[in-house]
Amino acid sequence: MQMLDFKQNYFQLFGLSAEFHVDKDLLKAKQQALLAEFHPDLFVNASEQDRRLSVQQASHVNEAYQTLLNPVKRARYLLKIKGLELNDETETTSDTGFLMEQLELREQLDECRSNQDPIACCEEISGKLKSRAQQFADEFVTKFSTEQYEAARQVSRKMQFIYRIQEQVLDFQFQLEDELA
């Protein structure tokens, strides 16, 4: 079996340049081309060792794909390549305006429960979050491309917060739907 070069970073693995904007179609095409070489289905009759290797390599390809597909993970990964690691546990943002905004969003989400149409209420919040996410992504590109990495890191934290709330909204919608069903 041919082996992937695990020393390559994910952008190199997919033959993409290390920047925030990625061509999603190209990303997907490259993922599938790699899986067409390493997917465990191609090794069902192979030795135990090769089967294990194929799971490992296909997993690596999928992990790389997920990282580059998701804008928040991609931003953090770019910073990591530049030697700036983020630690979820210890780092918070000190931008009080942003903190206030987050608190408000969470409150709005709680209020959706008593709304006449809770699902529509969630979707409205999702819309707001989406445009905020876009703004921060643009800001990240500006900082990152001009090598202001520390500033880019600040922005990536905000992206992360927004992403978390987006996830919460989805989970909340999930739960609401279960309750309504």
């Binding site: 465990p40 997993s59 999928n62 997920q66």
Partner: peptide, 8 residues
């Protein structure tokens, strides 16, 4: 909905 196989 993460593509499998995957390891983390």
């Amino acid at each position: 909905n993460t593509a499998i196989p995957v390891a983390r």
